[in-house]
Design a binder for these strands. Structure first.
Lengths: 236, 236
DNA sequence: CAGTGGTCTAGACCACCGA
DNA sequence: CGGTGGTCTAGACCACTGG
């Protein structure tokens, strides 16, 4: 009854989740022990254990060995934020994607750049400058430095067909990435290529990707504020 | 050997993770089946199963019933983004937090606001306007509308002691939240209270929180771009 | 059909906590 | 000490995929 196909561990999760989201169990309150839930649902311990473990990874409860399971402090709204390949994003909206390549070249690394890319100061690095368009409107200015050791064929790629992001994903398996999002005004050149005024604020994403043992690339992505935002969702 | 305390499922995860991040197994490639890994590690199937299930939830592999397990397309860099209570954030940096309350009052909802909060147009809602300071410098302008049904005591709270976010978390258990981040210039009033120029771009987070059956609040958080950014990290 | 993953059981041993 | 969670096993049945 009322259950035929939902897995038992999902039913247990739903039970706990509901009690929490209705405020019956508040942050810090104990959640019934595995053995209690075992008897209540008439199932094996492993099943209950799986349910509770998954709730931990979802951030809803906290478990302490020897002590018990407790409702987590929901002091932080946390959610998955995805930074996706711009081409996919545009295509998914059913719009026309295009790119213009302003620059693809070798370049000597400055001291600071070399430090961030993990190469010697003065070593050769790749530098690309690409504008991305959605239905002909510029929506992203991408300035990227690449470690040649991570993607030796970078300069040979045709960035009007494959975005730099995609080329890197395919040639330098991603093991780690960090980014920051900030608001700032565009430089004169950025404004010119994005066809916006210099007083139009932009979202700037600075991203550093690591592939295996080395830093693969360092990118600066400038989105006109009027044409882009990042959205996210949190689900208890 | 080399294993005394790390759980077996973590060893299996590490094994698969390593193959992927070294590029030995590329996106789309098959990962050894449960039974193969079972024999390779000499462990039970449930243990291998747990390892692979966790890798799925981390987005590294994809499983298809009846078919197999495959390395996931890493086409999207995804990471946990946390939007935290500003007071905690400041305290954690070891700085002094303070808040100034500009407005806390009842107000009649406009049609649009009512729609978003899930109350009738013209119904009474709570409205607060709070400036948050870090070491005396304004870092956040918070404009928030609250559904009285979700937090009836909202107007009685002292927002110089408890942030609106925290009050809501404590009185209206969070079940869902959605937000968007954009860049824009501050309004005259925002600029004045944040002590910045009107041409200084800001990160604006618009957040909608849901508690149980109803929308709890609608907030607009304005961060001066020069004093704040959001950072995140992705770990394969 | 054989092989895959999805789920579940009924035990087990351990480390830890609090009384 | 008893109760908690953390891990693990050796089976089991099922639904699905592919040839």
């Amino acid at each position: 009854m009322g259950s035929s196909k939902t897995p038992i561990y999902d039913q247990v999760k739903a039970f706990v989740r509901q009690r929490i989201s209705q405020g019956l169990w508040k942050p810090g309150d104990p959640v019934p022990s595995e053995s209690a839930l075992m008897h209540q649902f008439g199932v094996s311990r492993m099943t209950v254990n799986r349910a509770l473990r998954e709730l931990v990874s979802e951030g809803l409860v906290r478990r302490v060995q020897g002590s018990g399971t407790f409702v987590a402090e929901l002091s932080r709204i946390s959610s998955r934020l995805e930074i996706r390949d711009i081409c996919e994003e545009v295509s998914e909206r059913g719009h026309l994607y295009a790119a213009r390549v302003l620059k693809v070249q070798k370049q000597k690394a400055t001291a600071e750049l070399g430090r961030q890319l993990g190469v010697r100061s003065g070593a050769v690095v790749f530098h690309s400058l690409v504008i991305h368009f959605e239905n002909g409107i510029p929506i992203l200015y991408e300035d990227r430095y690449v470690n040649p050791a991570a993607a030796p064929d970078y300069l040979k790629a045709d960035f009007t067909k494959v975005t730099p992001t995609r080329h890197l994903l395919e040639h330098a398996p991603l093991t780690e990435a960090s980014y920051s999002i900030e608001a700032s005004l565009p430089s004169a050149e950025e404004a010119r290529h994005l066809k916006i005024s210099r007083s139009q604020p932009c979202l700037v994403v600075v991203r550093r990707t690591v592939s295996g043992p080395r830093v693969a690339s360092l990118g600066r992505l400038v989105y006109p504020g009027s044409r882009h935002n990042f959205a996210g969702k949190f689900q208890a």
